[in-house]
């Protein structure tokens, strides 16, 4: 028995050694930070040093913070607006790409081009487009058309949609390529058959294209919710959460807790709260994914 174990161990040692680098990477890059993050959220800390056990105090403090309800509302608001503004754009782009006969490659490059730009550059670019005085491009257009200039990112009621817009511009090209790939897999004969039955463009899209991208679009919906829920960089770069916290998100608050207020334990507690909320979306995501693979 012992000899058998030794012999098996000897045989498999090379395999274990080969996967050891990956195990180390997963441990140091994924498992350890997550476990430590959760542990920190229950700790009393001085800087990044644990000095005691805090129980649920950090969670209570985060939730009792007078800003917390606004942060939660804003974060859901980002998610809502990202679906309203950003969810259908990649689908439309993919359909246009799929239906185009001429300049398809050029249009594909144009569609993907914003995704190739660094996120910071995109936000800076749009920050200047939105500039609220006469030097902002959008205000130049408005005033040329005879309208009054508008305060864009400084309008507390609409600042979140204005931030979501460049996010859509930046991200929709890459997502559109997935949809486009899905549409490319549709048998052309189905389109031809629909056309012979007298189906117009809209009907062809509805009865042929949509059923093929329905599963993937559901996955992207869940992925988008998860992604936007932790929004941080965009409001940080464009508004720093202002005006008067109108664009503050839970993600941005974790940044402020950790790096401005120097309280990583609160950042971790808030992150765990976000994680729990996102767990629900993730469970939904995995269920959808399973459904998708079962159908394939």
């Amino acid at each position: 028995m012992k000899d058998n174990f030794k012999s098996n161990a000897k045989k498999s040692i090379s395999g274990w050694l080969l996967i050891l680098p990956s195990i180390l990477c997963v441990y140091f890059m994924i498992v350890r930070p997550q476990v430590l993050g959760i542990a920190y959220s229950f700790a009393k800390m001085k800087g990044f040093r644990i000095i005691g056990f805090a129980g649920l105090d950090n969670y209570v403090r985060v939730v009792k913070d007078s800003l917390f309800p606004k942060l939660l509302f804003n974060t859901f608001s980002y998610t809502f607006w990202s679906i309203i503004i950003g969810y259908f754009v990649p689908i439309l782009l993919a359909i246009v790409l799929n239906e185009m006969v001429h300049f398809r490659n050029g249009f594909r490059i144009m569609t993907y081009f914003p995704a190739a730009l660094p996120g910071v550059a995109v936000m800076m670019l749009w920050y200047f487009l939105y500039y609220p005085d006469a030097s902002g491009l959008f205000n130049m257009i408005l005033t040329k058309l005879g309208f009054k200039s508008y305060i864009w990112l400084q309008d507390p009621k609409w600042v979140i949609p204005w931030i979501v817009l460049p996010m859509t511009w930046h991200g929709s090209g890459a997502t559109a390529l997935y949809y486009f790939a899905a549409l490319q897999s549709v048998n052309r004969e189905l389109y031809e058959a629909a056309m012979m039955d007298g189906a117009g463009f809209i009907r062809r899209i509805r009865v042929v294209a949509f059923p093929h991208i329905a599963s993937i679009s559901l996955l992207f919906l869940v992925k988008q919710i998860i992604g936007v829920f932790s929004i941080l960089e965009q409001p940080l770069q464009m508004t720093d959460g202002g005006p008067n916290n109108a664009s503050m998100s839970l993600g941005l608050q974790t940044y402020k807790y950790a790096f401005v207020q120097n309280k990583p334990q609160l950042a971790m507690a808030l992150s765990v709260i976000m994680f729990l909320i996102l767990c629900i979306a993730t469970i939904f995501y995995f269920k959808m994914e399973k459904k998708l693979s079962d159908n394939m």
Binding site: P243, N244, V260
Partner: peptide
């Protein structure tokens, strides 16, 4: 820093 953050928000509100 926490106080400055709160005051930032007040200033932003009165200016918008």
């Amino acid at each position: 820093q926490e106080l400055y953050g709160l005051l930032d928000a007040c200033i932003q509100e009165v200016l918008t």
